[in-house]
Write a protein that binds this DNA or RNA. Structure first.
Lengths: 337, 337
DNA sequence: CCAGGATCCTAGAACGTTCTAGTTGCCATG
DNA sequence: CATGGCAACTAGAACGTTCTAGGATCCTGG
């Protein structure tokens, strides 16, 4: 019961089973070169002793670790959903994941540094604010896949959602409901906000609504949405697309407190389809990212790089889809003013 | 720029600097036994070559990994807050964290299994539904600290919030506002719900309100709170304490949809102080757990076990604190019926 | 001029695996 | 009755570190 016992090793199993260490190694790996009866006996002994292979020693020798490092941000709910998808995809490809978290007091560089020491064969990075040149210097050592961000570097793979298309879907949806005066609350300096903003602007022009284009400064947090709402209320549009769900939640709150009804007076579309947007009394129409698709493609890119198979383009862009809930409806005024 | 280069090792640095491998090791570890000039030269060369110690090889030799395994659930927002605290506490104690996530498709046993292979020196478990006996069998191999759950085993350390006290604080707060008819929405089979329920009952009795004790079945999810609300509405109390914030959110939604005002007609207290409860339009009065305290004590327990220092009691219970927001107020009826 | 002790450095084993290059024993074949 | 071949196993090096046990070199004091 004491915990300091000493770890059970191949040698222990070998001694107990009366065979060589090498033979046990063969059996444990399921490699050819061992007879059926010894195989059974060795497995039984290993089981009894509670043997667990030491992955570190294993990879020290074999060079391969079949380990993929993942950097995620503890504060971002979407990252957690994505982790779920990544575990599945990695497992299917025969790789393990090793996680390193970014927290309010633990930066991205620290998180990456830890992974570098861990001998993983590739690194998957969620968003973050590293510069492309920093990514490149990591990519010089091992394959890097950046998710939910772009990188103007040929040596970094990029897998993300088609932000511009998402904005198009949001605007198309609102226009099909009859809206014309559609504003956009921006995401500031966060990755993807430029693309979402540009997509909004282009979609508006495509619908001949260039004169109604209106971009309000915002950000990724709830308060950013709340502040944007106050600006909008001076001269409210009939609909608004917001950078993300959290910001949209802040906006919703201020709008309703000011006596406007949603979607009666104002339709609101978020972005990300986080669990927040699914809460009953938020029930936000939003743009959902294809989590499993993103995860699968990211792992695919990483594995291709690791195994040196000639791969396709370095950027994979996945289409999102509109999720209609109850914050969007037809505009109340006959023609939106 | 190719990624398959071959890792830079101590030997490379040694050759380049014209010293022995052992000497470089000394310098890299900051151990005594190297002259100032060589120290500088070696560090410079290591820097130039981009040397990074291979933590796996290091710990293979040294036995110690200074690595703490953490099992957390991707779906639980509270776990993420706790991770932040744990990273800080572990860093301060000179340990690294290695994370293993539980996801909807990746169970606790898998998560623990991965850590066991990783040579960490102790395991910290967040909640979960493993049986005490399973915990004990892991604890036979290495120290286990269970957080946010209890374990009737002497060989497992336990660090959690004082659930009963939290319920007392909630009831005390409501009573001090003048409430008498205070109900409780239960958490079902989730860890801590029995303690929170018992705490509620005891606090009610302490205030001489035994006749008003009313426990409604619930759970940890939003819908559980919503369902409980429907039951409560048949004969509404003036206040309710809910198992957790998420459930409270569901309850709030149903209550408001049915035309009751909060806190006018009904005061609501949640539990956990998750980021959800801080959202402007939820703004839930709740019981906050002391995250940094929990994290610090958990690491402390783990390190004590690892280093074999004679430690105190195996269970550490940390008092929570009431966080008053806007979902609680004085009851509207003169004496709450 | 030599003993004694610092100070700086090195050789080589060890950690728990994997892997290459055998070695053994057995059976079939000519 | 040698020979070849195959299946089943083993010895020992290797992976990149740490650590123990020394070996130089130099200074200091008698």
């Amino acid at each position: 019961m004491r915990s300091g016992e000493r770890r059970i090793t191949l040698a222990d199993v070998a001694a107990e089973a009366g065979v060589s260490v090498a033979c046990v190694s063969i059996v444990m790996r399921g490699a050819p070169g061992a007879g059926e009866s010894t195989r059974e006996r060795v497995l039984k002994v290993a089981q009894e002793l509670g043997y667990r292979p030491d992955s570190r020693a294993r990879l020290l020798r074999s060079g391969r670790s079949r380990l993929l490092g993942v950097v995620f941000d503890v504060r971002h709910p979407f990252h957690h959903d994505l982790l779920t998808g990544l575990y599945d995809a990695a497992g299917a490809a025969g790789y393990q994941l090793t996680l390193s978290a970014v927290t309010p007091r633990r930066g991205e560089r620290t998180a990456v540094g830890d992974l570098l020491q861990d001998r993983c064969e590739a690194i998957v990075l969620f968003g973050g604010n590293m510069r492309s040149s920093e990514l490149a210097s990591i990519a010089a050592r091992l394959p890097v896949v950046a998710m939910m961000r772009s990188a103007r570097r040929k040596d970094v793979d990029v897998v993300h959602n088609d932000d511009a298309l998402g904005s198009h879907q949001a605007v198309d949806h609102l226009v099909s409901l009859g809206h014309q005066r559609i504003a956009h609350v921006d995401g500031g300096t966060v990755h993807g906000s430029a693309e979402r903003r540009a997509g909004y602007q282009e979609a508006m022009r495509r619908h001949g609504l260039a004169e109604h284009i209106r971009v309000v400064p915002g950000g990724a947090a709830e308060e950013d949405g709340a502040r944007a709402a106050e600006k909008l209320l001076v001269d409210p549009p009939t609909a608004v697309t917001v950078f993300n769900d959290l910001s949209a939640t802040g906006l919703l709150d201020v709008v309703r407190r000011n006596g406007l009804s949603v979607p009666g007076d104002l339709s609101v579309v978020g972005y990300d389809d986080t669990s927040l947007s699914r809460l009953a009394h938020i029930d936000l129409t939003t743009i959902g990212q294809d989590i499993d698709g993103l995860a699968a493609r990211a792992i695919e890119r990483a594995v291709e790089r690791i195994e040196g198979t000639p791969s396709g383009p370095r950027a994979v862009i996945i289409p999102p889809r509109l999720v209609v809930r109850t914050t969007t409806g037809t505009p109340s005024g006959p023609a939106g003013r």
